[in-house]
Design a binder for these strands. Structure first.
Length: 447
RNA sequence: GCGAUCGUAGCUCAGUUGGUUAGAGCGCCGGUUUGUGGUACCGGAGGUCGGGGGUUCGAGACCCCUCGAUCGCCCCA
């Protein structure tokens, strides 16, 4: 019979393991902790929706809908799509579940998203995001709130140093439209000198010329009309209040007049936290105010603001996740002692000590494994030797030692281990902190 | 969709202008040595050189196709 072939993983998916997986988990855990401080409520969302949930809200940018979504028909012929973002699904849930009664509602979630794209650094077909939204709040304070959450998250992840908040306003519908018209007119005058891509964008998505990477476009972008000249009084006032609030919350930012959003329903605040440490994919967290989205899904006018952040990108910046609690490895010297090893490990774990059991290979091998898995301490179980005058049936000799040198600062850790042992065994001899050891004791079953 | 680079043991890689039985380090398995054991040494398993076709007396090395990876462009909700 032919040897079965191993199926390949799907392009753009990842199997995350080891340090990277720890960093990933650390990002999610930090988000969960911080989001509670800001009282964002956790929501769980379906991973797929009717295609129209996304296609209607995303609308005209045809590339995105037709080429970059994972869509398929179910058995009933219904077109479904794996969620390419959280926002549209949350807006749908807001409407279909009557969450309007909670408005304004602060929501947070995280999980996998899917986009049919060519993978590159920090970009995958199945990727993961953190997401925070405030729905039903048109006040600039809501913008400040989501930005303060984002800012604190990055600070607590310890990556705020290399990341800057780029902030812009797109104004309200009227100012945005006036600006757009001015941009089209301006770029049209220079069309011949623009890059091919930007000439194309002039028709499809003129705002995007502003963040073109082509050097030929740069000089024109620098002199392009600015949104500030088109902001109405209300829009100006709104942006002013956001800036004021950020200052009060001590969130630092930079004005980025070229920062835009591709979709039409965005209003006012647009922002990205950007780093130069991730190659071409430098946006680590991005979002803005999307006052028009809920209406495209048939709901009432509902102002909202939110952001999403790529977990993989954050994890890359975090690098090594902070060390876990110190690990102790329980090493039974002989196979007969393995069940005692299990028992002691269980007792330690119940007491909150992170413990591993070395259960395979020779005794030597077990020490080797303990050394390499980063154990802070090793608890060795062996039969008490009769040479010391105590018959072997009396008990087990237990040694806890530490690979390097004894560190008195860890006495609380040592005392905890000792307490667990003495709570469950008779300790008939104990030599605390003998040279090189934290604990050196003979245990006897309690009768 | 487009472009560049790459694809040799589980991992990281070396393999001279194409030349006979394909190598190292780490890891894995076994053994010897070592004071409760972060040492050293010895041995072993493991590769259809991503896959297919071609050029050649001869291809891991050269050519074509294909699959995959990486990085970038487009796009970025």
């Amino acid at each position: 019979m032919a040897k079965p072939t191993t199926p390949q993983a799907i392009r753009g998916t990842q199997d995350i393991f080891g340090a990277e997986a720890e960093a990933f988990a650390h990002v999610v855990e930090t988000f969960e902790r911080v989001r509670k401080l800001y009282r964002f409520r956790r929501v769980e969302m379906p991973v797929f929706e009717r295609t129209e949930v996304f296609s209607r809200s995303i609308g005209e940018t045809t590339d995105v809908v037709s080429k970059e979504m994972y869509s398929f028909e179910d058995r009933g012929g219904e077109s479904l799509t794996l969620r390419p973002e959280f926002t549209a699904g949350i807006a749908r849930a807001y409407l279909t579940n009557g969450w309007q009664q909670h408005a304004p509602v602060k929501l947070a979630t995280h999980g996998p998203l899917f986009r049919y794209e060519r993978p590159q650094k920090g970009r995958y077909r199945q990727f993961h995001q953190l997401n925070a939204e405030i729905i039903g709040a048109g006040e600039p304070q809501a913008d400040v709130e989501v930005l303060a959450l984002a800012d604190q998250l990055l600070k607590e992840l310890g990556i705020a140093e290399g990341v800057t908040l780029q902030l812009n306003t797109l104004g309200d519908a009227a100012s945005r439209e006036a600006w757009r018209a001015a941009l089209v007119e301006y770029f049209r005058d220079h069309a011949a000198a623009l890059s091919e891509d930007s000439q194309d964008r002039l028709e499809r998505n003129p705002l995007r010329i502003l963040d073109s990477k082509d050097s030929r476009d740069r000089p024109f972008v620098a002199d392009a009309p600015r949104i500030d000249d088109f902001l109405g009084g209300e829009a100006q006032d709104f942006f002013g209040k956001v800036c004021e609030g950020l200052k009060a919350a001590s969130v630092e930012w930079q004005r980025a007049p070229s920062l835009v959003r591709g979709l039409d329903y965005y209003r006012h605040t647009a922002f990205e936290f950007v780093t130069d440490r991730l190659g071409a994919q430098g946006t680590v967290l991005g979002g803005g105010r999307y006052d028009g989205l809920v209406e495209t899904l048939g709901g009432p006018h509902t102002p909202a603001v939110g952001w999403a952040a790529g977990i993989e990108r954050l994890a890359m910046l975090v690098g090594e996740a902070p060390l876990d609690a110190p690990l102790l490895t329980v090493i039974p010297d002989e196979p007969e002692d393995e069940s005692l090893a299990n028992r002691i490990a269980a007792l330690l774990r119940h007491a909150g000590v992170s413990a591993d059991i070395a259960f395979r290979g020779s005794a030597k091998r077990r020490f080797e494994v303990a050394r390499r898995n980063g154990s802070r301490a090793r608890l060795v179980i062996r039969r008490q030797k009769s040479t010391e005058g105590i018959p072997s049936r009396l008990g087990h000799h237990v040694v806890v030692n530490e690979p390097d040198s004894f560190d008195p600062a860890d006495s609380a850790y040592r005392n905890l281990i000792l307490k667990v042992l003495s709570d469950h065994f008779d300790v008939i001899r104990q030599d605390r902190a003998a040279q090189g050891y934290w604990v050196d004791a003979v245990l006897k079953e309690r009768t």
